[in-house]
Every structure is written in C-alpha cells, then in structure tokens.
C-alpha cells in the first residue's frame, strides 16, 4: 500500500536538547491500549508536555509558540527502549516528518523508516550548533533533500550529508511499502522453506 512520498522538506524546527530520550517518554505505556494507528499525537511527550493536572508545561519546547515546524531536533541516542511503533505514530501524527539527532536507537530508526518519518543522523558538533542556533533564532529554516542526502541550514547554507541505505531511500521517495515487496517474493520464500526442510 502506498504511503506519503518524501522528496524535499523545508521547515523550521523544534529543539529537544536532551540525551537518551526513550520511547516511554515519547508515548507513555498507558496510552498504548488503542487498536488503530491514529490519534497518538495528542499524547506525544505527554508527561513532559503536561503537568499532572493536564495543564501544558510552559518550559517544554513543544508548548513554546516560538518553536514550530515539521522537523524535530533531539539530543544523542533518541528513541531508546521499547520497540513500540506507537512512538513513531505519535511523532508523525503530531506533524513531524523528520527527526534529527546524532544517534538513534536501532528499532526506533527502523520504525521511522517504515512510517515515512525520516531519521537523520548528523555529527555531534553539527547537532550541538544546530540546537543552539534554533534556540537563538527560533525561525531558522532547514532543508532536507532526500535524493541528494543533504541536510542544509538555510540561513547559513551550512550543509551536511546523511546516510540512508538505497533501498529505504527509494521506498521513501516513491512511497513504497516493504510488505508489498515481500509479498512479491512469496514464491521465493516457499522455495526457501522447502530447501530448509
């Protein structure tokens, strides 16, 4: 089944300058009882975004009106812990289309790629500079060019290239789905099973 295509994204950013943000913070377990993929964005970062009375925490960057955009920029080792794909659904449902960090947890990164959310790994120093630039100038726009694997901070024209395997890149650019691909291999899988026995 086709998904949204990702080619070029220009957007402002929301900074989250914390390390080791785990998927329990992204979407706490008590919101995992739903049986559909929709609506998780309301509870994205729930316990950081709202106090225990349900009022928005002013200190949290998602509640800061100066920070908007489709790109989340987060500290090192983002998405560790639980394999819950709900974390990616929540980030996507909230409106983000890319997450930038210097390091992602493996399962989270796979989950991103399977849902059209682009995880971009940039060097530590670049990330640090980007976070402080966004904090100084909240309207800073960035440009993500998936085809050329280039992340650019537009006002300064500072660029960095990022890695993505070419299969996943093609899937994202064309909005293709892994399952369609695997289903096309069913005969090959049946032969493999026979051989294995």
């Amino acid at each position: 089944m086709s998904k949204d295509k990702f080619t070029i994204l220009e957007s402002t950013c929301v900074p989250l300058p914390l390390e080791n943000v785990d998927t329990d913070q992204i979407i706490p377990a008590r919101f995992l009882s739903a049986t559909s993929r929709e609506g998780f964005g309301d509870n994205l970062f729930r316990d950081w975004r709202y106090d225990h009375n349900g009022n928005p925490n002013r200190d949290f960057n998602l509640n800061n009106p100066r920070y908007t955009g489709k790109v989340l920029v987060a500290g090192k080792n983002f998405g560790s812990g639980s394999s819950r794909e709900h974390a990616v659904w929540a980030i996507y449902d909230y409106g983000f289309r890319a997450v930038v960090s210097s390091f992602f947890a493996d399962i989270f990164r796979n989950n991103c790629l399977n849902n059209g959310l682009l995880p971009i790994v940039v060097p530590d120093k670049f990330l640090k500079d980007l976070l402080s630039l966004i904090e100084r100038k909240p309207g800073t726009e960035v440009r993500i060019d998936l085809e050329n694997q280039l992340f650019t901070i537009l006002p300064t024209a500072r660029s960095v290239s990022f890695d993505i395997n070419s299969y996943k890149k093609e899937c994202l650019m064309k909005g293709l789905d892994d399952i369609d691909y695997l289903l096309s291999l069913r005969n090959e899988i049946v032969s493999f099973e026979a051989l294995k026995k």
Binding site: S83, N110, N111, L182
Partner: peptide
C-alpha cells in the same frame, strides 16, 4: 521489532 515489521 515494530508493528510494521510484525505485519511483514
């Protein structure tokens, strides 16, 4: 694995 992978 994630849920998309469960589906795979």
């Amino acid at each position: 694995i994630g849920t998309s992978e469960v589906e795979m």
